[in-house]
Design a binder for these strands. Structure first.
Lengths: 331, 331
DNA sequence: TTGTATGCGTTATCAT
DNA sequence: ATGATAACGCATACAA
């Protein structure tokens, strides 16, 4: 099924058929209708290799991801699909599995496929090595920013997320707030801590126990840490947890200690990973990273760069507090 | 950077350069080396649109998925990447979001991009509508089988998985085994029940309480159901749970009832979704669906079909029991 | 063994 | 308004 067939059946020349299908001017309305009709009838779709060969644009994006479970990359992919609009763009998804060799391998393959742009998704918000500035197509880094200020990156605003979490608790009248955080070596953990600390300081408050408790991103850490927190500051009335998984551990620990959530201790966590956040009793109030919006934004910036509007630096994507039963009774 | 440039710098003609790079015979070793060297030096990669236009093969696969979180599709994608071998294939990932309109839309787009084959991933193992047999490229259905016997599908062997789960419990000496299953309307739930039932019957045993307990795929269902089970059959010494999430609820419920796991009651579940299976205390013994192997298999079958070896029917992919602390002390 | 010439399906330029 | 024709970059049949 080629354009030639369509042209023949419509009784026009190849070039007229092309113009008609591409919505160009200088083609009689009647002729255009006839061409469109026959194309529809034959369910003709232009061969995109041929088109790409001529136009130099393939209408494809490369998405290289490094998060093994696709927890970030699938929503980001969906956002990018949306941003592209009526399916003008198709996306190659490659999994680099945190391996630089594999990543550069995928990179070469994608460039050879003449993708129009690249989105690089990391597994944590710590800066990652830049792919360099010699690439023939624009690149946007998502979730993990590039370590080069000349690149463009989109990352979640974890500091604002931390503020939002603790602001919510304060607005509920809680004042003795502890923070059981994630892994100190992760920027995300420290950013969240910073946001919490900033807001408390502004309000003339401070963390129960005077400092955050760093650990690991696990339920086990939450279970263990909450014992220490309750022991050190028995009057604590709220806990900010570094992730939903930590919160699940904290919740379990609090039950074991006879504290009710949210009556005695309110909980707010991060990620809003629904299987975890909505599986517990009570469900978790959590700060959502807005991955899909991040994907949309990344793709939009990519399109902008493709049309010449290059931008640099790190853009932050607002987070969104989702309130559930762990912080408000009856929610 | 085109082949012409490479040829020019290597001092040969276009066609000689092409032959040299494509490893064809009838080219002087010395000449080939010179061409390969210059290609390497210029980091030349053939324009795949041009190649595709000529050969009719794009070296791309389309993967249309319907599972929102990418829990199935990412491992399946990885498996397919592996099966393709040294990165010969790139994969378009499209998310149809359980929407037939969107699916057919992606389908059209992928066909217009001349993908060499298609993998269609569903969100549950119930049969799904076939895309038809008029497609110009081979299709393999993964996880959710096609409802047409003329198509080729690869699905997890949930019946064998159910057998494996209960066989493990019986081998540990458990005899009063209950089954808190998932949603009865899902084939996966019924298959797992069937496997459990078959093995028990073979062994002259039967389920504690005489029948499985169907519900929903949630922690909440597990929490509630386990109370009823313990009440009805207080001497139960093992429970097969329809999913890891159900098992998490069951585990929590058992603790509330003062039963120890695994000493009093052993637990086996399905999915081996690590964040859940490894987050609890004890960790969950679980039946893994082997998604990555499923992806490899699907891709292999696709490649076979692409080279003429068409197959039909539903292939089952073996599951794998992962033993952890919920069934064996000290594990 | 090497080079010349042709075609893949499309778009774009230029006559008509 | 329409149509002939030349690219796009590569692979191959065929001539040298």
């Amino acid at each position: 099924m080629t354009l030639r067939d369509v042209a023949q059946l419509a009784g026009v020349s190849l070039s007229t058929a092309s113009k008609a299908l591409n919505g160009r001017t200088d083609v009689h309305p009647e002729t255009r209708r006839r061409v469109l009709d026959t194309a529809e009838r034959l369910s003709f779709k232009a061969n995109s290799s041929a088109r790409a060969l001529h136009t130099g644009r393939t209408g494809t994006l490369g998405l290289i991801t490094n998060d093994l479970e696709g927890r970030f990359s699938i929503p980001i992919l969906m956002g990018a699909e949306d941003a592209a609009g009526a399916g003008e763009m198709s996306i190659f998804l490659c999994d680099a599995r945190e391996d630089a060799i594999r990543e550069s391998y995928h990179l070469r393959a994608l460039l050879s496929r003449q993708v129009d742009g690249l989105i690089i998704v990391g597994s944590r918000t710590d800066p990652r090595p830049s792919l360099g500035h010699e690439l023939p197509v624009p690149v946007v880094y998502a979730y993990a920013p590039s370590d080069s200020p000349e690149d463009l990156s989109v990352v979640p605003d974890n500091v604002a997320g931390g503020r939002a979490a603790v602001e919510h608790l304060v607005s509920l009248g809680r004042r003795r707030i502890a923070h059981i955080a994630g892994d100190r070596s992760w920027v995300a953990a420290r950013d969240r801590v910073d946001g919490v600390h900033d807001y408390l300081t502004e309000q003339g408050l401070e963390l129960a126990g005077g400092r955050p408790h760093y650990g690991t991103w696990s339920e086990g850490w939450g279970r263990g840490a909450v014992r220490a927190v309750i022991e050190a500051t028995p009057d604590v009335d709220a806990i900010v947890c570094g992730s939903d998984q930590i919160a699940r551990g904290v919740l379990e620990g609090l039950k074991g200690l006879g504290r009710r959530v949210p009556e005695d201790v309110a909980l707010v966590s991060f990620d809003n990973w629904e299987p975890f956040a909505r599986g517990s009793v009570p469900q978790l109030t959590s700060v959502d990273m807005n991955f899909e919006a991040m994907g949309r934004r990344a793709a939009q910036k990519l399109f902008a760069a493709m049309s010449g509007k290059v931008e640099q630096g790190v853009l932050t994507q607002p987070c969104r507090l989702v309130v559930r039963g762990s912080s408000i009774q009856g929610a």
